[in-house]
Amino acid sequence: MKSLRDEVNLKYFRAQIIQTVLFEVTHRCPSDCIHCLLLKTPKDELTLDEIENLFHQLRDEGTVNIGLSGGEPFMRKDFPEILELAARDNFFLTLVTTGTMINHHEVNLLLKSRVRNVEISLLGANSATHDTIMRFSGAFNRMIKAVNLLRDNGIGVLLKTTVLRQNKQELPAMAKLAHELKVGFQSNISVLPQENGDCTIQELALSEDEVAGLDPSLVYGGLIPGENLKDGAILACTAGITNAGISPQGDIFPCIILRYKIGNIRNRTLKDIWHDNPDPFLSRLREFQEEDAAECFNCKLKPFCRRCPGSVYLETGDIGKPSPASCVLAKGLMRAYNAYQRRCP
């Protein structure tokens, strides 16, 4: 029997109402992560008035969840006001941050705006690795201080890592650190191309052999035999249906990873972009079925693969194709999983 939540989610899906948005409030950042997909963008960020109008439109659309991301959101001097505007429209807020600019004052702002969760990048188990990948000296110590402050004030914290060649040895130690800090931990082994489709930074991703050497219980939500494999490759998803992404300049995307600009909030209303006159790409995306990703649909690696329409689009420009980078990682992950199964039958 369906729960009330399932029924409501179905309503959102059928009516193609945006339920969740990730809004990059700025691309400015004190860090300069070696694997960042963002390019340096112009500074004509949405103004506070424009953001207020955007939030009203999202509220009227039916949107409930907003992730405020960057860059580093606190790089905007008016970020406290943005938080206040979002709280006024009663969104449920998640902050995605480097954790390098959070002190007592910022924690109080987050509490006041009813921010539920904070997701923080963790790129090493110590300052040497973390700071080197972030290219920001002192980032690790600042982040640890922020985690302690947030946790002690009852805000949920999730440490998220991207496993790269530079930090792969520290994956167990990063998981241990999160456990010791009493916060959540999530790892990801995919490195996305840059937003212009340049795949050069994917060279930072692990090779098949390196992935095969990982402990699969520490990857994604923990790939343990008999569990979690249902969360395999995403061939079709809710991007462009109940999910959207918004750039600092007001570009609207079907999702923050699937960075195809379907309109800009500065010259069209959200309703016009999303419902009344959708871009043909958006219409195609909404009709896209799993079977349309023909090569991936019957692939034996599917349970181990984390390709998604967004990552494939960035890599190949076609949401129906396989993701070359994901294929490599999936092969390694299947080997890691099988080896784990042999060790722990």
């Binding site: 309503k11 959102y12 009516a15 509220r59 039916g62 949107t63 409930v64 009663n90 449920f92």
Partner: peptide, 9 residues
């Protein structure tokens, strides 16, 4: 105010 209220259909 801690509830988000949205009109869906």
């Amino acid at each position: 105010d801690s509830f988000a209220v949205r009109e869906i259909g």
